[in-house]
């Protein structure tokens, strides 16, 4: 087991070297890809392991962004304090709302999380301290290498957290909840506590990503911070890579970000259309994500795809 982790060291080294090797465009693409991968990885903690599909993690992203922006733009505090404020806001909201909303299951949970993000967006659009509809402008720092390394560090931390979860008692409790929540409670899993812990953990990493992004682009507004398309992207990337796995969300985020980047240079409508088609094909042929493809294909060959269809068709 240990040597597989060592094999990751060169990958991490190359990723960390990008600011010195690549050009400005690559670094900017890298920051975006690393941050969206962090969002996917955070979503994975709750969505992938417990099966609670949130379409509202952008609520935490927005809180992280606004926490950072308010601290820096309104109170003239350092970036680090802003990040911390955003994370605290996200934890408080997750802890307060988690109790009632985590009792809901399936699509009900999904839609309520969507509603929470929309409600927070409306709330911040009416707050004076958050600049109302206009938003806030943060102090400018032209240091993309710093933002890049920060994003990489955050993604690495989120991935280490997920790797720990996957091997821990906590993680197997989350998986038991996903597989059958009533049966999990009957064997003694305190589902409420574990789900809440997963939500809070996801909220922290998501808020930190939001804070870094806000400082990087130096401008935030309600629509861009509580952005539903962001929710959709983190869900799709996780599902595409492999939910409930350690590296699936990261792989999914990198692959889809790259495809999207290439296509978006041409016509954006065609890129979106292609994105939709990828989702359709992935759900049909790769329901367990890209990460399952290697093992499945080795075992079954081309029949792997047919077996996936056979299992889910009527």
């Amino acid at each position: 087991m240990k040597w597989r982790w060592l094999a990751l060291a060169p990958v991490l080294a190359v990723l960390a070297g990008v600011p010195w090797l690549g050009d400005a465009v690559l670094i900017q693409f890298g920051i975006n890809a690393l941050l969206i991968a962090t969002l996917a990885q955070s979503w994975n903690i709750l969505g992938g392991f417990t099966g609670y599909v949130s379409f509202g993690n952008s609520a935490f992203y927005g809180l992280g962004a606004y926490g950072t922006a308010i601290a820096m733009a309104q109170w003239h505090q350092p970036f680090w304090l802003g990040l911390a404020l955003g994370a605290v806001l996200a934890v408080v909201v997750a802890a307060v709302l988690g109790g009632p909303i985590l009792r809901l299951r399936g699509p009900y949970f999904a839609i309520v999380t969507l509603g929470i993000s929309a409600a927070l967006s409306a709330l911040f659009a009416n707050l004076d301290i958050a600049g109302k509809n206009i938003g806030l402008i943060l102090p400018l720092t032209r240091d993309d290498a710093m933002f890049y390394e920060l994003s990489l560090g955050l993604l690495a931390a989120a991935t280490v957290a997920v790797a720990w979860i996957a091997r821990s008692r906590f993680g197997i409790a989350l998986i038991a909840i996903r597989e059958n929540e009533d049966a999990a409670a009957a064997v003694g899993v305190d589902a409420t506590r574990y789900k809440l812990a997963a939500l809070i953990l996801a909220a922290v990493f998501t808020a930190l990503a939001g804070g870094i992004h806000a400082y990087w682009i130096t401008f935030i507004d309600p629509a861009g911070s509580f952005d539903t398309t962001l929710d959709v992207r983190m869900v799709i990337m996780t599902m595409f890579g492999g939910p409930g796995t350690v590296f699936g969300p990261v792989i999914g985020a990198f692959v889809l970000s790259a495809i999207y980047e290439v296509l978006a240079n041409g016509i954006s409508t065609a890129a979106a259309l292609f994105f939709g088609l990828v989702i359709l094909l992935a759900v049909i042929f790769l329901p367990k994500g890209l990460i399952d493809l290697g093992g499945g294909f080795r075992a079954l060959g081309w029949r792997y795809f047919l077996a996936n269809i056979e299992r889910h068709r009527l």
Binding site: A176, E179, N180, D182, A185, A186, D190, T192
Partner: peptide, 24 residues
């Protein structure tokens, strides 16, 4: 007490329609 607490106290139950964790 909620079900998980009763499990901690030492009450275990099976289900008429068995409820395994199917993917495990």
């Amino acid at each position: 007490l909620p079900p998980f607490r009763r499990a901690h106290l030492g009450i275990g139950r099976t289900y008429q329609l068995t409820k395994p964790f199917p993917g495990l």
